[in-house]
């Protein structure tokens, strides 16, 4: 399975990954710039913020209430297609997904 991250510097990283991993874990393990994942995927730090590419938005869906609250921490750069990628698990449906790393200040 594949997932593509577009870093803030424009570099695209396409990574071979395993079903069940979250996009945050994949990014962190492969050194994608700008995905920090400080809280380890517990949806409490908003340091893995991405914008989901249009064709994939319906597949991954909207953030739930808890994720919505965590996204509030980055509301100054929040968009309609914002997600915390620790909450997106790779599966057959999301194989090939493409996301852009959102700007952050840390």
């Amino acid at each position: 399975m594949k997932v593509t991250f577009v870093q803030l510097d424009g570099v695209e990283k396409t990574i071979e990954a395993v079903e069940g991993e979250t996009l945050m874990e994949i990014a962190r393990d492969n050194g994608v710039d700008g995905i920090l994942g400080d809280c380890g995927g517990s949806c409490s730090c908003a340091t893995c913020h991405v914008y989901v590419d249009e064709p994939w938005q319906a597949t991954v869906g909207k953030p739930d209430d808890v994720e919505e609250m965590a996204l509030e921490m980055v509301y100054d750069v929040m968009q309609e297609n914002s997600r915390l990628c620790c909450q997106i698990q790779l599966n057959a449906e999301t194989d090939g997904i493409r996301v852009k790393v959102a700007p952050g200040e840390y």
């Binding site: 995927g41 517990s42 409490s44 994720e67």
Partner: peptide, 8 residues
């Protein structure tokens, strides 16, 4: 420990 303290 992270598993014990998820926001959910």
């Amino acid at each position: 420990l992270e598993k014990a303290f998820t926001a959910h």
